[in-house]
Amino acid sequence: MRLRGRVAVVTGASRGAGRGIARVLGEEGATVYVTGRSTRAGGSPTGRPETIEDTAEEVTARGGTGIPVRCDHTDDAQVRALFDRVRAEQGRLDLLVSNAWGGYEREVRIEPCWTLDPAHLDLMLAAGLRAHLLTVQRAAPLLTDTRGGLVVLTTWAVGEPYHGNLYYDVAKTAINRIPVGLAEELRPYGVTAVAVSPGWMHTELMDLTPEQAAQTESTEFVGRAVAALAADPDVRRHSGSVRTVVELAAEYGFTDVNGRPTSGFWEQYARDLGKEHVSGTEC
């Protein structure tokens, strides 16, 4: 229960990485505000059955306190209201996990740029890059008042190698730049900012064979990475960087829920690049 007494906000937590992160934070004793657009009363914009209430209940069942808050992170008024509520109810914010990302509402295909649909770009920018920026911007006053906190942005560690989808490559590269600026602006307040990249995760959206599933990471693997960072008294050394989950697993000594320290995803990625290994800044 390393995070007992800590207050966290995890955005986009009705499913996927956000849900896995919230679960682990609950297991560590944190109070977790679980945000997203999917609720029991209003349903999901994507038609999925998972809800923020489901995630919040799992957080509480694991030993933390889960608080569901419906929030569309593309809407400035809703984002402001979220952090106003956290301030009113808790008076502090120790951990922000900015995870909401609308770019996967459509399949990200490897295809020539001239065949891409600009509507998909709009999703990646509005419900991805802009949502991240808006969320950290509205959380910043509470983080700076609290001092000593942590901002984690979930991402994909694109770098020199081209992803293959121009929209995705540019959007994720821009997101990976956010911790650089945040590290500079929040350093005087003792707040750390880092981007964390999982590998190929087995989420609720994926129908995989057992062989395929064996090559994936669970959504709680990235949750363990976030928890390790949040519990590290010297986490500032990571500020402004992009780190893969397997890098953090090696550093902090945690494994995935199946006991493995890695799915082998990044090792295969390194082999494809002709390297012995890759770091978060190279991927």
Rank of each mutant, 00 (worst) to 15 (best):
T55R: 00
G259I: 10
P210T: 08
A225F: 10
T209G: 05
E247V: 13
D272Y: 10
G280P: 02
G43V: 06
T74L: 04
V278E: 11
R260T: 01
K172L: 10
G240P: 13
E27N: 05
R243E: 06
T51K: 13
M201F: 10
R177Y: 00
A174C: 08
W156I: 13
D117R: 12
G164S: 13
V136F: 12
Y252G: 04
D122W: 11
A193N: 09
L208G: 03
L129S: 03
A139S: 12
L82H: 10
D272G: 15
H73M: 04
V9F: 03
A227V: 11
S241L: 15
A157P: 12
D72P: 12
I178G: 04
S14Q: 13
P161M: 04
G264T: 01
T255M: 02
E217A: 00
G259H: 07
L153R: 00
A213R: 15
E28C: 09
A139M: 13
L129F: 05
D117W: 11
G5K: 01
T65G: 02
E58L: 05
V242E: 00
E204V: 13
Y189M: 02
L133P: 03
N258W: 03
N258G: 00
R224W: 00
T209Y: 07
A61S: 15
R23Q: 07
E267W: 02
V108T: 09
H202D: 14
V34A: 03
P261S: 08
M206W: 14
M201R: 09
R37T: 08
E267V: 02
V257K: 02
V245I: 07
R2H: 00
T135M: 00
I52Y: 05
L96A: 08
H202G: 10
L208Q: 04
A77V: 12
L125Y: 09
V59S: 10
P112I: 02
G29L: 07
E53P: 08
W101F: 15
R85L: 15
V170A: 15
T60A: 07
A8H: 01
L3D: 01
D122P: 09
F265I: 00
